[in-house]
């Protein structure tokens, strides 16, 4: 069993169903499992057929569900900043800055950042409250950005710390004959905050690239676009050192489905062969197209049996 299992892939391929059945199978093996949706357009609740919110909800024995709500997380974050502000800053400035903080949520990247923060928090909590966390991620582009954030932002923040330290060093030189100034710059909370942030990023990076505990499975359909996109995503994950697990090929049309679908089935077979060749490094699991939507525990159980080794 891996501690962190991610399911990713193109939109509509069946990520949520796979993540749900995987978490169900883990829970039934007695593993305390949390299934988390990081997709802003959540569908976990629909799959389990019961409401799930931004706090963990007990779905079955040993199985909890959670849908990350970027807005709620951002609110929590800004509230904590406001609270800190009231201790440190005079009232007139607070008003001015309140506006800036409220605007900040609208800035590009804020939603992603809020989701990412929650994401780190959850990963840190693994091992305490839960033995395993299954992530149902957003369609490829969004998720890749999320997973590669620690590396990118880590570099950026390193640069900021360096600059601040340089300024401090010069100040120290200037303050050699000025005791008041020396005392003022002796401790620098800005560097402390930046360093804490950097540590958080590097922790996330460490967890994501840990082959022992983390695995990223792709869910795809036997279609041209899905194969191409998955290929690119696999390359990118490898570049960033995130371990890639299996390929789950979903919605394969079974033989004898009728003349209308026969042609489609033949083209799918071609892509299936391509998938088997191209992603031969990990297991390739093939799931048939079902007559009905996947909903409820019984159907999830059928899928999880087929996924077998990926979720045990």
């Amino acid at each position: 069993m891996k501690r962190f299992t991610f399911f990713g892939g193109k939109g509509g391929t069946g990520k949520t169903s796979c993540a749900a059945s995987c978490s169900l199978s883990l829970a039934e093996q007695g593993v305390r499992t949390l299934v988390v949706s990081t997709d802003p357009a959540h569908s976990l609740a629909d799959t389990f057929d019961r409401p799930i919110g931004y706090e963990p909800v007990l779905l079955r024995p040993n199985l909890w569900g959670l849908e990350i709500d970027a807005e709620v997380e951002a609110k929590k974050y800004t509230d904590s900043i406001m609270k800190k502000m009231l201790h440190l800053v005079s009232a007139t400035i607070v008003d001015e800055i309140k506006r800036q903080i409220e605007l900040a949520y609208l800035s590009p990247g804020a939603e992603e950042a809020a989701i990412f923060d929650k994401f780190i928090e959850l990963m840190e909590s693994a091992g305490k409250d839960y033995d395993a966390i299954v992530f149902d991620t957003a369609p490829t582009g969004h998720t890749l950005r999320l997973l590669t954030l620690p590396r990118v932002l880590g570099v950026w923040i390193d640069h900021l710390i360096e600059k601040r330290q340089k300024a401090r060093k010069l100040m120290e030189v200037a303050a050699r004959y000025d005791r008041a100034l020396a005392e003022q710059i002796a401790q620098d909370p800005v560097i402390e905050v930046l360093t804490a942030r950097r540590d958080k990023f590097s922790l996330a990076g460490k967890i994501l690239t840990d082959t022992e505990n983390t695995v990223f499975h792709f869910v795809l359909n036997p279609e041209k676009l899905a194969v191409l996109e998955t290929g690119r995503a696999v390359d990118l994950l490898k570049k960033y050192g995130i371990p890639v697990g299996g390929m789950i090929v979903n919605k394969i049309i079974p033989a004898g489905a009728g003349t209308f679908l026969e042609k489609k089935r033949l083209s799918q077979e071609k892509y299936l062969r391509e998938i088997r060749e191209r992603f031969a490094e990990g297991p390739v699991i093939e799931l048939p197209m079902l007559e009905e939507d996947v909903q409820g525990m019984d159907q999830l159980r059928i899928i999880s049996e087929k996924m077998g080794a990926l979720c045990s």
Binding site: H87, A104, S107, P189, V190, R197
Partner: peptide
């Protein structure tokens, strides 16, 4: 450095303006 941290206040986009908010209380003055 302040320009890098809070450039978005004066119209320069910042990739992590969201994370920079936590510095605000410290440099507000």
């Amino acid at each position: 450095l302040m320009l890098l941290l809070f450039g978005d206040f004066i119209g320069i986009p910042n990739p992590m303006s969201y994370y920079m908010l936590e510095l605000l209380p410290l440099v507000a003055d």
